[in-house]
Design a protein around this nucleic acid. Structure first.
Length: 973
DNA sequence: ACCGCCGGGTGCC
DNA sequence: ACCGCCGGGTGCC
């Protein structure tokens, strides 16, 4: 008795948060992430194989976890094990314990694992039926510099790693007849690794060829007021199928009674949880928002439309025309589409799928599609039914269907499952084939709400599009969960049809008592889903913690830099087993980054299964999805005036000398902030002399602490104003809450604070290794922001670039006064400078920059987009403002006042007006000052683009070296 | 576990 | 016999 109780305790111990704990506390610790990111070491992907070792798993009979031939197993240190502090437990892919590593071997491994010298992975090739012990093939992976320590450490304890080059393939051959071959072959197979170029191509094309949707087209529910384009109907059809059909997730197959994963060789008795959702990765402008709105309205439970309240609105002729026709849904469909409507029109499947065990109503379906509801359990559903009837007083059959569904949705819960259903009319036999039937028995049918999470800048877009695309006579309950007055009631939120919030609000709310995390959402949609790609970020954790039946990611650019970015997306979708990082790393990420063909193939398969992506240039039935007007980009060279040129050359020579000195000393990175400041000044010279803030030119020897502080703030200001999208070297994201160290490097405050906190007295600047202290971090004083705006309004002067812009505007106004313009700069102060001549020449303009509140932005955008005669002709736009998703199609001419470091930023900006809805030809004019740093920037932009695309496998080191090279090129050194 | 190991019982053949 | 041998109890870490 005693022993069994005890065992139970141990099992519990080993199963609780097995991998998450381990990752949080061990492998993915912050200090390690920092080390990987900030040190010049190859990061975790760059690990090499040290060797193999055959070990023994013991204690099988005490645990329930089973493994198959060739299945990968996880090895988890258990330092708290009361019998042996060296214990290493063995677990299968679902985290169920299988056994332990034999004591002596565990002792040797514990040393290696605890000191992070190597990561040990296991694959079981035989003996999976054994009762007591079985062999396991262990492989040791780690950084090259730890290789000898690991090999020697193991040897000292009597374990000789097999480091022979052929050992891996040897194992392969041995197990090649078993299914285990696949688990191993994705490591280092017999195949020739991909070249960097092949890898790059494969990566670029990862999301290509996903546009042929096999699901045909689907009409949106009646409540969607806007007719969908063919490709949007395809997307809707695909999304509905992804939500309704129970297709096995990728790599799973049925083998007899078991479900088997061909990649990990894991098998389970239970059907693996299907992925209800996926990634809609259509290019921006193809209507992801509209398609998602259509999904919300079209695919409620059991494939039926969302039951919504409608108003009688016969007065308006337009409304009357678009109003659903009485008693017939066919006419309605015909109106929405003139394309071949497939057999999957929205109302047809309703009848078939309505019979679900979980409803506590008795229903009768007859051949004429008339449904009668008999409420059997007065208490639980009468309320729901009454409410449903109130929602839609009409008496048409489809309405009753919806009512039934709604009643079921309200009353149906896990507690009511015992009640029976009855079908009296034609039942198309036992149609429940595993592949196609809707099996929602495990669902919570009371879930109603779709939660949409998006960046702040696109909230207005959602609200606008909902208003625009949902039929005016339909009452859709949409709640914007934002602002301090937001309603946090779970009951309230879960009674809505749609709740919209931002990543920041979600992340701020998360933790205890988060209403968003307490609700079982019908659906969670991550808009611009690529914004959560750093798994360590609070936002990502907040997103992963949401409870939902269906999960969607909308993103025009699902991969920003590397395969790594995909993990977060798969984890959000809960694509097992890859939601656990270890399996993702072992099965996909490492093989792919090492150029393994099978690994890449697997990744492609994976992505293909869950993604739909069409680009602007994709075609449906040979015709382009959308036709965008032409776009012409021209560069206009600007000559500096003689005075400007003299000032510029002076600054350039000074800067050149300084940088030359740094290059000679090899201290470019250490003085990076200074270098950026020099470049910044030159770029400002190119635009307008007044952009050059009064700054002390050299950090040099600061006499007093106050002076040092002053200079640091100056530098920080320059770095931030540079628009270079300076990244924090700790988190590798754009700096957030910037602070500058005494060694003049800029980081996010939380990031650098963590470094200091972790390393305490020994804390060093990740970039230059100077000592840093928490109380020496300097941040931007608040009042500076305000002060800046009022500095140079007294006496205004022009510049060559200002002249160039004005010349263009005046000329174009004569040619066509109806054109609207975007005038884009990275320097908000340059935008301010431009206001004066615009006013002087009678141009009406609005301004949009990052400092504006959301409310103000929306207002400005509306004003600009308006077609009213007195609407502004020009928008002064700061390059980084708004981010993606802004719709500025009123403009058809873009002036890029100064080149950006990142050409993608410029492209994005241009796409704000060159997108769906643009009717005119789009002209882009880029102003570049001749013989200046700007010209060099443009040259580097091209190379950089290549570099960014190659980002695959580009380590931190490479990135930094390239930065130094960039600087040299810019300064012509 | 159809093992190995431990430790008690036992003791020429 | 401070041994060897036998056979029962026992068994991950």
């Amino acid at each position: 008795m005693f022993s069994s109780r005890w065992r139970f305790g141990l099992d519990r111990y080993s199963e609780v948060d097995l991998f998450t704990d381990r990752y949080e506390a061990d492998v993915e610790t912050l200090s390690q992430a920092i080390r990987a990111a900030a040190s010049e070491e190859p990061d975790a992907d760059g690990s090499v194989l040290f060797g193999h070792l055959k070990g023994t798993v013991v204690g099988l009979r005490y645990y329930t976890g089973v493994v198959n031939q060739g299945e990968m197993v996880g090895l988890v240190r258990q330092p708290e094990n009361p019998y042996d502090r060296n214990a290493v437990m063995v677990a299968n892919i679902y985290g169920n314990q299988v056994g332990h590593i034999k004591r002596e071997l565990a002792a040797a491994m514990a040393h290696v694992m605890d000191n992070n010298l190597a990561k040990v992975e296991g694959v079981v090739h035989s003996g999976t039926k054994n009762t007591f012990t079985m062999p396991v093939m262990l492989s040791f992976w780690g950084k090259e510099e730890n290789k000898n320590a690991v090999i020697e450490g193991m040897a000292r304890r009597g374990y000789k790693l097999n480091t022979g080059g052929s050992s891996a393939t040897g194992i392969n051959q041995k197990s090649s007849n078993s299914q285990g071959a696949r688990a191993m072959s994705s490591k280092k197979g017999l195949t020739i690794p991909l070249t960097a170029q092949e890898l790059k191509n494969a990566f670029d094309n990862l999301f290509d060829g996903l546009m042929e949707s096999k699901d045909g087209e689907k009409e949106a529910a009646k409540s969607v007021g806007t007719p969908l384009l063919p490709h949007q109907k395809q997307a809707l059809s695909w999304m509905c199928a992804r939500e309704n059909k129970s297709v096995l997730p990728p790599f799973w197959e049925k083998r007899g009674e078991l479900y088997y994963n061909s990649l990990t060789c894991f098998s389970a008795k239970e059907i693996p949880e299907r992925i209800r959702g996926g990634i809609l990765a259509d290019d921006m402008g193809l209507g992801k928002t509209l398609t998602t709105i259509a999904l919300i309205l079209t695919n409620f439970h059991n494939g039926k439309p969302l039951p919504v309240e409608t108003f009688e609105e016969r007065s308006s002729p337009i409304k009357a025309k678009t109003k659903p026709q009485e008693g017939s849904s066919a006419g309605d469909r015909a109106e929405v589409s003139n394309a071949a409507a497939g057999p999957q029109c929205s109302d047809i499947p309703q009848v078939e799928v309505i019979c679900v065990n979980t409803t506590d109503v008795e229903e009768i379906v007859d051949s004429a599609d008339v449904v009668e509801i008999v409420d059997k359990s007065d208490n639980s559903t009468s309320k729901g039914k009454k409410k449903a009837n109130k929602r839609k007083p009409s008496k048409e059959a489809p309405v009753m269907l919806e009512d039934l569904d709604f009643a079921a949705a309200l009353g149906g819960s896990a507690a009511d499952t015992g009640l029976k259903k009855k079908k009296t009319a034609k039942k198309p036999g036992p149609t429940l084939s595993v592949e196609s039937s809707v099996t929602e028995s495990a669902d919570d049918l009371s879930a109603r709400t779709t939660l949409i999470i998006c960046p702040l800048s696109v909230i207005s877009n959602w609200l606008h599009q909902l208003e625009q695309h949902v039929r005016a006579n339909v009452k859709l309950n949409v709640y914007l969960y934002y602002g301090s007055e937001r309603n946090r009631s779970k009951a309230f939120l879960s009674s809505q049809d749609v709740v919209i919030t931002t990543y920041n609000v979600l992340s701020a709310d998360s933790g205890n008592k988060s209403p968003l995390h307490g609700i079982n959402w019908l659906r969670v949609v991550l808009d611009e889903g690529h914004v959560v790609r750093n798994p360590n970020a609070q936002m990502s954790k907040a997103v992963l913690g949401l409870k939902a039946q269906r999960r969607w990611i909308l993103s025009g650019t699902p991969i920003q830099n590397s395969v790594k970015d995909l993990w977060m997306l798969l984890a959000f979708l809960r694509l097992k087993p890859f939601d656990v990082r270890e399996w993702w790393n072992r099965v996909i990420q490492r093989p792919v980054t090492q150029g393994d063909r099978a690994g890449l193939q697997n990744l492609q398969t994976l992505v293909k299964c869950i993604t739909l992506r069409r680009t602007k240039s994709s075609k449906v039935n040979g015709r382009p999805l959308v036709s965008l007007p032409e776009k012409a980009v021209c560069v206009e060279q600007v000559e500096l005036s003689q005075t400007e040129r003299e000032e510029y050359e002076l600054a350039r020579n000074e800067g050149k000398n300084t940088i030359r000195k740094y290059v000679a000393e090899g201290t470019v990175l250490r003085n990076y902030a200074d270098v950026l400041a020099i470049l910044m000044r030159l770029r400002q010279h190119c635009c307008h002399p007044d952009l050059l803030a009064k700054t002390s030119s050299d950090l040099g020897a600061a006499a007093t602490p106050a002076e040092l502080r002053e200079r640091l703030i100056d530098k920080l200001r320059l770095v931030l104003a540079s628009g270079s999208d300076e990244e924090c070297s700790v988190c590798l994201e754009s700096v957030h809450l910037p602070v500058i160290t005494h060694c003049a490097h800029v980081y996010c405050r939380p990031c650098i604070a963590q470094v200091i906190n972790t390393e305490q007295e020994t804390a060093r600047c990740p970039l230059c290794r100077s000592e840093i202290k928490a109380n020496e971090l300097v941040e931007f004083p608040q009042e500076e922001m305000e002060e800046e705006k009022s500095t140079n309004s007294d006496k205004w002067r022009t510049s060559s670039k200002v002249q160039a812009l004005m010349g263009n505007l005046l000329r174009l106004r004569c040619e066509d006064s109806s054109i609207k313009y975007l005038v884009v700069s990275q320097f908000t102060r340059f935008l301010s400078i431009l206001e004066a001549p615009l006013r002087e020449h009678g141009f009406s303009f609005v301004r949009l920059d990052g400092t504006m509140s959301q409310k103000k932005r929306t207002q400005v955008i509306q004003e600009f987009q308006s077609s009213a005669a007195d609407s502004p002709a020009i928008m002064l736009l700061s390059l980084k403002a708004g981010g993606v998703g802004l719709n500025l199609t009123a403009a058809s001419h873009v002036f890029l006042m100064d080149p950006a470091w990142n050409p993608a930023t410029e492209e994005q900006c241009i796409d704000r007006c060159h997108r769906l809805g643009q009717t005119r030809k789009v002209v882009v004019t880029k102003f570049i000052v001749k013989d200046s740093v700007e010209e060099n920037m443009v040259k580097i932009q091209r190379q950089k683009q290549d570099l960014v695309e190659k980002a695959f496998g580009s380590s931190n080191t490479e990135r930094k070296t390239s930065r130094i090279d960039d600087i040299k090129a810019l300064m012509e050194l």
